[in-house]
Design a protein around this nucleic acid. Structure first.
Length: 760
RNA sequence: GAGCUCAUAGCUCAGCUGGUAGAGCGUUUCGUUGACAUCGAAAAGGUCGGAGGUUCGAGUCCUCCUGGGCUCACCA
């Protein structure tokens, strides 16, 4: 019997003789741990036994919603980092919380359609070879395949996800909630139609996302033009007819006298009136320090135009042709200019540019041409056509007012960040979060529930139902917006959308969730939006802690990418070394928010650790020799016993060491220092328990003194502690050893380790 | 240009609220007939990027510098 602090530990040795010895001979543990068979067996056991489901008897919830992996590709190493979540989940399950880890998959709109179209391209086909419905169905099938691969991979990593609550962003229930949110936002005035520049391919007839833009370095002539009293440089003289302003840096002394004035600038079609505005974003050192502003055809100018309320006046149409109708419809235009306008009208951009350059020369407005100007230009990844930034009508969500509540919640500490520095990042993003363009010109996604009345041109917004007629004019000719929601619009609602859809009562019990754990790279895109949506729809923060992990790079510190060919498939490492080893190597010695380089050496080292643990258990098994250990551990005080009652100093010290280790690790778990906790348990198990304690025990057992039963008992009890402490990190090997060892406990509950209690 | 971040043993990285440095891999030497060679024992190897400052005391806090990385914006 031992006193350690306020607790006392007592154990007796029961000799059960020959029966057990026989059993032992037949069932000796293998010399080397075989992860593959054990992992398959235990995952099946846990899943089929319902151990991943929250325990209904327990009241205190602990919830994590898995960041839904994109359903367009197998898992990559970043997904294996979700091991952090499994560690938290298993830890809390052992603490006795009602623990839910909710799995899901994201349809990942643009990205998935992009990946799919790349595949189509290999077969020589493209998105325009199919109808909207066909394309959608094809992507759907493609995604279903990927989903099942991905879900099985999550299983192989040992993630204790409650598969009975699996969700997909395109599940009808989720879609319905997304629609309801959109309707609510619209009704409350947070949704409006606005113009936005879209990278438009005039050949394909569609807009492209940033992802799809193929930037190429190209040489184009840079034209220096006489521009009233100034000189400006441009590669796109064809757009200057619709320049609306000139911008200079407010500190630029050269142009102070023009600020705020409206100048008459002679151009190819006569004088253009133009205001001179000051904007700090203009670089006075670039070129002449003057920038012409063409809001309709340049993304940067477009932003400036919005900032200063400049008119957006396109001169290029969606067919990529010049459109001068605005000029031709004017009366009283000089004949010369009118002829010019007629000449340009309807011409393609490149052709029109040539004509204009000639006319500029004629008018003496062309000062010089720099033929060696190199710049980056966006082209269509499919046809190579130069993309035109063109203004299109889009749905926008008003952000500033909504992000204020998010800022408040964070400032009040309702959401905490691990590591803390990301609090500042989140606040900065929320402060600068402009209105959000929530529509995308793709078919793969949730189609926006907006219909335009072809008679009165008004929009009708519903929560998903197809409207019969226009409430305004009763016309029945309604056309639905072809656009779909930005992926983040649906995934931003993920925490409450899922819990409201899984089963009745889930939302009430598990929302707000406990921790949101994800890569820091999607903090602004996803985490901030979830906070905004969560507060808007549920009036509660969606999670109370945000834990952000770093990016997993290759062994040389390079980002893994397919083009570099340095992608390490997590499943290959699982196959080779076991899921436990991979998980542990991703956690061991790392910290939140820091990138890490993953080397196979490290995974191998952790595989060795699992094997070491296995052999510790094997050693103990060999030495127990047909005995059962009965032990009672209690926190009760027994005042009549003093420290002097300890029979065996070695036993006392060994136990004491183990208990203080458990305390250290518990503390580290509570502080989200999983990397340190992993190091602690590794160092303790191998270099203290095995190298020192076990080696000493080996000698004591050989000498066979009167203490030996207690030595055996101590070894077993400490192993039992280690298994519990290590289980969240290495669930498979610990469960396997547990199943081997628990037979030696005479009075131990026969639960699988996954639902055993955490040692304190 | 702005924000963040890193610089610790040959390599990859830990090091919590400040008290004279740790792990894995690698290297060297020795060791194996019953827990484990996916092992054990031992060793070599660091003025903790540089310069100041706060302190009795700094890898750990502050300032500046140097050199990487990431994110965002932008390149008219």
């Amino acid at each position: 019997m031992f006193f350690i602090g306020k607790r006392y530990i007592k154990y007796d040795i029961l000799d059960i003789g020959d029966i057990f010895a026989d059993y032992l001979l037949k069932n000796m543990m293998d010399k080397i741990y075989q992860p593959k068979t054990a992992e398959e067996k235990w995952y099946k056991f846990w899943e089929e036994g319902g151990y991943f489901k929250p325990n209904e008897k327990n009241k205190k919830p602990f919830t994590i919603v898995l960041p839904p992996p994109n359903a367009n590709a197998p898992l990559h190493m970043g997904h294996a980092m979700y091991a952090v979540e499994d560690i938290m989940i298993r830890y809390h399950r052992m603490l006795g919380d009602s623990t839910l880890w909710l799995p899901g998959a994201d349809h990942a709109g643009i990205e998935t359609q992009y990946v799919f179209e790349k595949q189509l391209a290999k077969e020589g086909k493209g998105r325009f070879d199919f109808s909207r419905e066909q394309l959608y169905q094809m992507i759907w099938d493609f995604v279903q395949q990927n989903r099942s691969t991905m879900e099985n991979q999550l299983r192989r990593l040992g993630f204790s996800l409650d598969w009975s609550r699996l969700m997909f962003t395109l599940d009808p229930k989720i879609v319905k909630i997304v629609y309801q949110t959109f309707k609510k936002l619209y009704d409350e005035g947070f949704i409006y139609r606005g113009q936005r520049l879209v990278n438009y391919c005039t050949k394909c007839g569609t807009g492209f996302s940033e992802l799809e833009v193929n930037y190429v370095e190209r040489n184009d002539p840079l034209y220096y033009l006489k521009y009233g009293p100034f000189t400006i440089a441009t590669v796109r003289p064809e757009t200057k007819f619709r320049d609306t302003a000139l911008a200079v840096n407010p500190k630029d002394k050269r142009y102070q006298k023009y600020l705020g004035k409206t100048l008459e600038i002679p151009g190819l079609l006569g004088n253009i009136k133009m205001m001179v505005i000051a904007d700090p974003e203009v670089d006075p050192k670039f070129g002449t320090g003057i920038m012409k502003v063409t809001p309709a055809h340049d993304p940067h100018d477009f932003e400036l135009g919005k900032k200063y309320n400049l008119p957006i006046t396109p001169i290029i149409d969606f067919n990529g042709r010049m459109n001068f109708s605005w000029y031709l419809s004017q009366k009283k235009t000089p004949k010369k200019y009118k002829q010019r306008a007629e000449k340009y009208h309807g011409k393609k951009v490149a052709e029109a540019r040539k004509l204009m350059v000639e006319d500029l020369k004629e008018d003496g407005l062309l000062l010089k041409v720099d033929e060696n100007y190199s710049h980056r230009i966006g082209t269509c990844y499919k046809t190579g056509t130069v993309l035109e930034p063109l203004p299109m009508e889009q749905w926008f969500m008003k952000i500033p007012e909504l992000s204020k509540t998010a800022l408040n919640a964070i400032n009040k500490g309702k959401i905490k960040f691990q590591p803390q520095r990301f609090k500042k990042t989140a606040l900065d993003w929320l402060k600068n979060f402009h209105d959000w363009n929530i529509g995308r010109q793709i078919v793969w996604g949730i189609r926006i529930p907006a219909w335009k009345c072809q008679n009165c041109q008004r929009w009708i917004i519903t929560a998903g139902e197809i409207p019969r007629d226009c409430p305004n004019c009763q016309n029945t000719n309604l056309v639905q917006d072809p656009d779909t929601f930005d992926t983040w619009f649906s995934s931003g609602q993920w925490p409450f959308a899922t819990l409201k859809s899984t089963r009745p009562g889930d939302f009430e019990k598990f929302y707000p969730t406990s921790v949101m754990e994800t890569g820091y790279d999607i903090l602004p895109w996803w985490v901030c939006r979830m906070i905004i949506f969560g507060l808007y729809v549920t009036k509660k923060v969606p999670f109370s802690t945000v834990y952000l992990h770093g990016i997993v790079r290759d062994s040389k510190g390079q980002k893994m990418s397919k083009s570099k060919g340095n992608v390490v498939n997590p499943m290959e490492l699982v196959e080779k070394y076991g899921a436990d080893a991979l998980r542990f190597s991703l956690i061991y010695g790392t910290k939140a928010g820091a990138d890490q380089n993953l080397s196979e050496d490290k995974v191998r080292a952790m595989r060795n650790f699992a094997n070491k643990l296995w052999n510790i258990a094997r050693f103990i098994e060999l030495n127990i020799q047909g005995q059962k250990i009965e032990f009672i551990e209690s926190k009760k005080k027994f005042s009549s016993f003093g420290k002097e009652t300890k029979e065996c100093t070695w036993c006392y010290e060994t136990l004491n060491e183990a208990l203080s280790m458990a305390k250290t690790i518990t503390k580290q778990m509570e502080q989200y220092k999983f990397g340190q906790a992993a190091e602690s348990i590794y160092a303790y198990t191998w270099h203290k328990y095995a190298d020192l304690r076990l080696e000493a025990a080996k000698k004591m057992l050989q000498e066979n003194l009167s203490d030996t039963p207690y030595v055996r008992g101590t070894l077993l009890i400490v192993l039992e502690k280690i298994l519990r402490l290590l289980h969240p990190f290495m669930p498979f090997v610990t469960e396997e050893i547990w199943s081997e060892m628990k037979q030696y406990f005479a009075n131990q509950p026969q639960n699988p380790l996954i639902v055993e209690s955490w040692p304190k």
